[in-house]
C-alpha cells in the first residue's frame, strides 16, 4: 500500500482535493476543467503505479495521458491568454503540431515505449506559451497583484515544471538506471521535485481563484 503514496501521488492528490474544494463552483469552464484533469492525473498515477508493480511496463498509460495533458493545458492557456489576445489560432496550430509529432513517434516505435520526443516538444510549447504570457503581462498597462493572482501562479507552476524538466527530456535515454540515493532513480527524484513545485503552485492558484470569486461575491 505504501508503494502507492510517494511525492508524486500525494502532491497530485492534494492538488486534486484543493481543486475540488476551490473550483467546484467556478463558472469558468477552463478553470473548472482542472478538477477533471487532476482527477484523470490521479487515476493515471495510481493505476500507473499498480501496473508498474504488477506488470513492469506502464508507458502505454502515460502515452495516452500525454494527449489529455496537452489538451487540458492548452485549454487553460487559451483561457489565460484571452484577457490580452485571441490565442486560439496559435494554440490550435500548436495542438496540430503536437498530434503530428505524436502520430509520427507512435509510427516509429511500439506503444510500450514512452513518447519522449513528443513530451519534449510539448514542454517547449508550454514554456514558450508561459513566456509569451509574461510578455503580454509586461506589455499590459494594468497592475497585477501577484500575491492574489491565480493566473500568475498557474503559469509559474507550469513554467517551473516544463522548463525544469528540459535537462531530463534532452538526456532521457542516458538517464536509465542512474541512481541518486539508495535505489532512488535520478529522473524519478527530479520529477518528484518538479511535481511538488507544479502542484504546489497550482494548488495556491486555485485558492487564489476561490478568494477572488468570494471577494467579488461579497
Amino acid at each position: 500500500m505504501l508503494n502507492y503514496f510517494n511525492a508524486n501521488t500525494v502532491s497530485e492528490l492534494v492538488c486534486f482535493i484543493v481543486a475540488l474544494f476551490c473550483l467546484i463552483k467556478d463558472h469558468n469552464i477552463a478553470w473548472k476543467s482542472m478538477i477533471l484533469f487532476l482527477f484523470i492525473t490521479c487515476v493515471i498515477e495510481f493505476s500507473g503505479t499498480y501496473i508498474g508493480i504488477r506488470y513492469g511496463n506502464n508507458n502505454w498509460e502515460y502515452n495516452i495521458f500525454l494527449m489529455c495533458e496537452s489538451g487540458f493545458t492548452s485549454l487553460m492557456f487559451i483561457n489565460l491568454f484571452s484577457k490580452y489576445t485571441d490565442s486560439k489560432p496559435m494554440i490550435i496550430y500548436g495542438l496540430t503540431l503536437f498530434v503530428v509529432c505524436y502520430a509520427t513517434e507512435m509510427a516509429y516505435h511500439s506503444f510500450l515505449y514512452y513518447d519522449n520526443l513528443t513530451y519534449g516538444f510539448m514542454s517547449i510549447q508550454f514554456v514558450l506559451y508561459s513566456l509569451y504570457y509574461f510578455y503580454l503581462l509586461l506589455k499590459d498597462d494594468a497592475v497585477v497583484k501577484f500575491k492574489y493572482s491565480p493566473d500568475f501562479w498557474w503559469i509559474c507552476g507550469t513554467l517551473f515544471f516544463y522548463f525544469g524538466s528540459t535537462a531530463c527530456n534532452l538526456f532521457y535515454h542516458q538517464l536509465d538506471n542512474i541512481q541518486i540515493y539508495r535505489g532512488e532513480q535520478l529522473i524519478d527524484f527530479i520529477f518528484k521535485l518538479l511535481n511538488v513545485i507544479l502542484y504546489g503552485c497550482w494548488s495556491y492558484s486555485f485558492i487564489c481563484r476561490k478568494w477572488i470569486r468570494k471577494t467579488l461575491k461579497d
Binding site: F134, L159, F160, G164, T166, A167, C168, L186
Partner: peptide, 27 residues
C-alpha cells in the same frame, strides 16, 4: 551524467526565477 543533469536542472529551475523577478520589478 548525474552531475551534469543535476546542475542543468538546477539552472533550468533558477532561470524562471529571474523571469519572475523581472516581471515583479516591472509590475
Amino acid at each position: 551524467i548525474k552531475g551534469l543533469i543535476i546542475v542543468s536542472t538546477l539552472i533550468f529551475l533558477i532561470a524562471p526565477v529571474f523571469v519572475f523577478s523581472y516581471v515583479f520589478i516591472h509590475n
